[in-house]
Design a protein around this nucleic acid. Sequence first.
DNA 1: GAGATTACCTAACACCGTTAGGTCGGCCTG
DNA 2: CAGGCCGACCTAACGGTGTTAGGTAATCTC
Lengths: 220, 220
Amino acid sequence: MSSTTHLDPTSPSRARRDREKAETRQRILEAARELFTTQGYAQTSMRRIADQIGYTATAIYHHFQDKDSLLNELCAVDFRALGEALQTMDKIPDPVTRLRLMGQNYVRFALDHPQQFRFMFLVERPIPGPECVTIDPAENGYQFLLANVREAIAAGRLRPEFTDPEMVAQILWSGVHGLAAIHLHSPEKTHPWLDLRDPDATAAVMSDIVLRGLLREPSA
Amino acid sequence: MSSTTHLDPTSPSRARRDREKAETRQRILEAARELFTTQGYAQTSMRRIADQIGYTATAIYHHFQDKDSLLNELCAVDFRALGEALQTMDKIPDPVTRLRLMGQNYVRFALDHPQQFRFMFLVERPIPGPECVTIDPAENGYQFLLANVREAIAAGRLRPEFTDPEMVAQILWSGVHGLAAIHLHSPEKTHPWLDLRDPDATAAVMSDIVLRGLLREPSA
DNA sequence: GAGATTACCTAACACCGTTAGGTCGGCCTG
DNA sequence: CAGGCCGACCTAACGGTGTTAGGTAATCTC
């Protein structure tokens, strides 16, 4: 019963098969990403994903549990990319300046990667997904934002009434997130009554406003 | 050709039939609203909507073009309600207080009508839609926000560098819009690393912060 | 009564996500 | 080398979806 028939994990052929399986898995992910981003999640069927890479829809189920976990995995990748983009600023000494630039980078990321951004934050999530825990907090953009808010509070830069770093972080996030969402949703003239200002300029002004409302007087 | 066979718009029986048709249409809308809000849009099928009121799915197509226009009509109703709710505040004398309350009402509306809010602002729009000529109900709310910003500027309440009412309005909107979007997207524990604060409290604090950053000194 | 209108129905289409069960080539053991 | 196992992939199918074609029967106008 416990004989290791066919199970040798050190065999070279086993390694090759593992590699091939990983490659197939990767090709599924790439096809799904392209179709999800160009056609939308609901408009992309498992059969079309499979067609694109010469497989049958059922083959996908040997690599992923269901359609949702395809999207989940793509989101995880994009989350990591966003987190890394934000963390490039940890060399800046002033935490408040970091907060300001993070906001502007967030908006820019959203406009540069509209589909991924939509994926991560705008698409209606089917179900929490228990294995979403795989996201490393160190690579998590929100944790980085939170750390910077904590640093600003610890340095006494914020007004004394702001003692909850989570709430301050969520307020900062909300501003840039909403700006990105509005621009993503009204790319052209979908709403003729809405004359959108330049997103980067608006993000900069918004950062100034929110930070002035947050900071102690002397730094105004 | 132009004989009015069967078309007499003044006939009483015609009026009765019109009323009955309108009632059926209304019952469809009510059933759709309940199912959309309790089960979600994607999880609600035309057949289930029809079942709920004793019809067949195809009957709905005599009253509405397709499933989307069902949700569209519900959205129009709700956003008109939002616009009117926001405008009830025009009795408040202080334009800045109006702006503060508008933001908090916006967040509450989004959380009270998650499906409609998502559909209006978050869902990927397929195409502007040519017969969307019916005035966008969101327009009223934005125009009202804009008018209040203009009034605040004209009254000299804002710092002198804020001369563009559109940009100020879009900044104010972005904050509450982003807060609503974040809460709508993470209703439960979809993101275990995110410990969301109470949305109403956060909206209130955010309004204070943004307005302090916007206002002239004396009113701090 | 004749004919048009209409609110609703049944049946079906094409497609969806997903599962059951089979095929078949390569690997491991003897 | 023989033989069995494994697993990546397939075909076929299930129950569901939004939507359409075409029919029926009641009602209206004349």
